[in-house]
Amino acid sequence: MAQKALGAEVAVRSAPYFPRQKKRISSRSIGIIVFLSICALFFCIPLYVVVITSFKTMEQIRQGAMFSLPSVWTLEAWDHAWNSACSGINCNGLKVGFWNSVQILFPSLILSIAISMITGYALALWNVRWAGGFLFLLFICAFVPFQIIMFPLISMTAAIKVYGNIWGVAIVHAVLAMPVLTLIFRNYYKDIPQEIMNAAVMDSGSFWKIFTEIILPMSGNILIVVLIMQITSIWNDYLIGVTFGGMGSQPMTVNLANLITISTGTTRYNDNMAAALQTAIPPLVIYFFVGKLFVQGITAGAIKG
């Protein structure tokens, strides 16, 4: 028996040896990579142009070579956009809008996430008889165009004296995000095993205690995803900011839009590009650091159903 096995091994060893060819990238793979690279280039062109333009002087821009690198790298435009660019009649730069955006961001985040988290938790894990109907209503609300509720919201915010200030913008952000976020949280909480809820109901029975001690610690993942999604969408918003912001509390995007649509005097393209970059940097930083969560967020926001 042992001899036989040995014999077999010898036979295998003495079999003709074909060295396996070193694995080559197939021509199809090369084709795909080349195609994808060209597409990637197309995606990068606007960013490249914006970046180099923001470092150019106006003299060089006027010469017209859009794609060439700055002959003199200067931060003049960045400084100008940040400190003295005009938005309407105020010429204090984008820093005003930046700080407004920051001030809008935090109350918006806290309000929108708090209300939708609690609502999602109550709808998913507690026995609410009309939960199904309410969810359907929220689902519809998530798709309603802003214009149809715009004037009533202006009147309502004016009535509670928040129209035209940061709180108005923050509250409207929270209101508009509520349906989508509630559905996201509700779908996430729906996957928590019913038995855990049963155990918690028997152990404590308190709605809030179960939320803070059991459910909230289990929400880490979805909370981060929603947080990223909300930060970018609040930061990038223009319509709510321009409608509810009033003169002194407009977010950065509104400043930027005012700057680029200005029709008097000569347009300083390098200032515009620097301003655009300054507006884009916060969400881009988030994107490049936690891109995967960002993608999860936008797809969760898109496919709520």
Binding site: E195, I196, N198, A199, V201, D203, G205, E213, I214
Partner: peptide
């Protein structure tokens, strides 16, 4: 449930993760 003077062991154990 919490006031009934009962304790329960669940099929999936239902431990708080």
């Amino acid at each position: 449930p919490k006031d009934r003077g009962l304790a329960m062991v669940f099929q999936s154990y239902a431990l708080y993760p």
